[in-house]
């Protein structure tokens, strides 16, 4: 018995070894490197090994850091909220109101196809819509709702959140739809037979059973938004900042140790956030 399980472990590790090697080289080592470099020092042109807390000290003493972290959380929560509402409604429609499987698959694919196209292009594509002379301003003006173009549509926090929701709502739709499809339809019938209204069925049966999907989608959205830097940079026209931009700005100035220290704090923040979320659901069981 003991022998068999050892052989099993060995084959398991052997099969998983390519995965392990890639993750060790391109995930674990880089994280270790970032942690190490976060204690290094920097001159204007180069970085040198050291063990000093200056980078962290600077980070924690700067009021910019707190403002930027706050902004990052704000973007995250607002985006998460809208993604959840949209994702749940869309998944609910697909799972319970579309009855033919062919239609379900077709409409589901229609939702997921943009996921496989370029995020950068999808951001660029908001320009003609939100710009000063864009479609939104032109239609609002011709409807007489506003007299002069709104300046805050493009290159603003509004544009950032809009782009986030546009890019990441799919990450909420897919897992929620996936969980909803596995809900036993007879439960819904039973609820109806027992006299539950549509709304009661939703709150007492569908939502509780969909929680794992909601949680997985939330983890995707939260981590993607917290780690982003390019959407904020592009959609705010470099006027707004989140933690990712703080890092990429340091990188652009070759201040790697400072970028590394910010990265460490960001990683810890993301991990704690996910840790808290994971307490609510066991993902591996839900796949």
């Amino acid at each position: 018995m003991f022998k068999k399980s050892t052989a099993n472990d060995l084959v398991g590790w052997l099969l998983a070894s390519p995965l392990l090697v890639i993750l060790a080289l391109f995930l674990v080592l880089p994280i270790c490197m970032i942690v190490a470099v976060s204690f290094w020092g920097a001159t204007e042109f180069s970085i040198y090994p050291a063990f000093q807390f200056e980078n962290y000290q600077y980070l924690f003493e700067s009021s910019v850091t707190y403002a930027v972290f706050f902004k990052t959380f704000l973007f995250t929560i607002i985006t998460w909220f809208f993604c959840l509402i949209i994702g749940f409604t869309v998944a609910y429609f697909l799972a319970f109101h579309v009855h033919s499987l062919t239609w379900q698959i077709a409409l589901f694919l229609l939702c997921t196809i943009p996921f496989w196209t370029s995020n950068i292009i999808r951001m660029i594509s908001w320009i003609p819509f939100l710009g000063r002379n864009g479609i939104a301003n032109q239609s609002l003006m011709s409807l007489g709702i506003i007299d002069e173009p709104l300046e805050w549509l493009l290159f603003s926090d509004f544009a950032v959140v809009l782009a986030f929701v546009h890019l990441y709502a799919l990450f909420m739709v897919v897992p929620i739809f996936n969980t909803m499809m596995r809900i036993d339809k007879s439960l819904l019938e039973a609820a109806r037979d027992a006299g539950a209204s549509g709304f009661q069925t939703l709150t007492n049966i569908i939502i509780p059973l969909t929680k794992p999907g909601i949680m997985i989608g939330s983890i995707f959205v939260v981590t993607l938004v917290m780690g982003d830097f390019i959407t904020v940079r592009f959609m705010s026209g470099s006027q707004s900042a989140n933690v990712g931009r703080l890092i990429s700005n340091d990188v652009a100035l070759l201040r790697y140790p400072s970028a590394a220290a910010t990265s460490v704090i960001l990683l810890i923040t993301v991990l704690i956030t996910i840790g808290i979320m994971l307490r609510f659901v066991n993902i591996r069981k839900e796949l």
Partner: peptide, 9 residues
């Protein structure tokens, strides 16, 4: 993990 960390590391 935030993508920029992989890139940076």
């Amino acid at each position: 993990i935030p993508s920029i960390l992989v890139s940076l590391g």
